[in-house]
Write a protein that binds this DNA or RNA. Sequence first.
DNA 1: TTAAAATGTTAGACGTATCTAACAAATTAA
DNA 2: TTAATTTGTTAGATACGTCTAACATTTTAA
Lengths: 226, 226
Amino acid sequence: MLFLIENDGMGSLTEENYIKSVYSLSQATGEVIVSELAKKLQVKPPTVNSMMKKLALKKWVVYAPYKGIKVTEKGKKEALSIIRRHRLAELFLVNVMKLGWEEVHDIAEQLEHVESNRFYDRIDEMLGYPKFDPHGEPIPDVNGKILNDKRIPLNQAKENVTVKIVAVADDKKSFLDHLNDKGLKIGEKVLVKRKEAYDGSVVLVSKAKVELMITHQVAERILVEE
Amino acid sequence: MLFLIENDGMGSLTEENYIKSVYSLSQATGEVIVSELAKKLQVKPPTVNSMMKKLALKKWVVYAPYKGIKVTEKGKKEALSIIRRHRLAELFLVNVMKLGWEEVHDIAEQLEHVESNRFYDRIDEMLGYPKFDPHGEPIPDVNGKILNDKRIPLNQAKENVTVKIVAVADDKKSFLDHLNDKGLKIGEKVLVKRKEAYDGSVVLVSKAKVELMITHQVAERILVEE
DNA sequence: TTAAAATGTTAGACGTATCTAACAAATTAA
DNA sequence: TTAATTTGTTAGATACGTCTAACATTTTAA
């Protein structure tokens, strides 16, 4: 007789990594294709193919041959739970352990798989139930609720729309100094005048009707909402 | 063409767990037998057998059929590095994260496999380069050096030898209260008069020439040295 | 609109870590 | 000292996560 391990809702470390990637890569268009996943996870397409069959059986994704992969509600819940742990870990490493924000990702990638609610609840508590991680990404709560889903990096905002700067996804002094030079700060409203296809730079008009240009590199580190 | 992963000194998570157990179980007699390991690691003997062949190939252990398993210097170094991470993690969970010492073991069991020197160096630093974990176990330094290798639980001390109490491996109030009742405290010297084979209890003679008996359960939580 | 290119799937293999069943050696006890 | 018991090993199987090679479908471009 043979009893399956992991018959409960849990996923193996590998499955956790897959659903996390499926979720984030499908955020933009609602689905993700095999080759994209393979690239992200550094495996070959057949590996993704067989894992998707497995996750489809678990009802974490919807997957039909030659069609894109979609996350189910169940899969979304899994993904958000891992993303929550990842982002809490990152913030903990930066705020409590005083590691640099550029070096915490790989460690958080490992910590996110630690199986212990106590551990994460304490981190959450020590951090004061934070809503955003050090990169400005929102942290889902225990129920997978994300506060303010609508934040997007400035480079993804539409042209001719006025947006409000709500956070920056970089807390290095040089970056913040640069924003000050441009006269940009949190709370400020700006009109996205033009996005250059060639180099991804963005032309803004500030409240004071001053036109200014920022590079793609800077734009993607400024989080805005409409 | 096939390139082996882990051709360097690193071990898989599984190998790490095996060498750690081999090391600790062989501490007392210098070696450990297959069935003991199987019990500790919750696997069947053939699994241990094949893993020992593998670790012998890596020169982490010395292993001949039907003979006990011995750790090599290389294996010891591996084991100590994992034990160091485990004990640092435990102390961090208790001192910094304020978790109870009875609940940190399972979390530390997971954290010990986190691959990041930065992470452990910061923990070490935050804790002030501690020498002992919350259970009184010594923490090896980065080079595997253990301060005071000679501490043993009282129940392992020889009869008719005077030993000094140097630490307790339990910080629960009820336990410490019990020691106070018996008049035992850290720094105290006691003579091990007799160890009862039947129930493992130990009869001591204190400095004040008072004879007292402590149970096995208590004796194994008192750390002494000659 | 059809041929070429890109993308996806199937089949079969492999290494890791595990198991059970059968057998072998060592230890213990009669 | 030999038989019983305990302990250890071998052989062969399985699940997982991965691969390559061959084939299938879809998309793109001529």
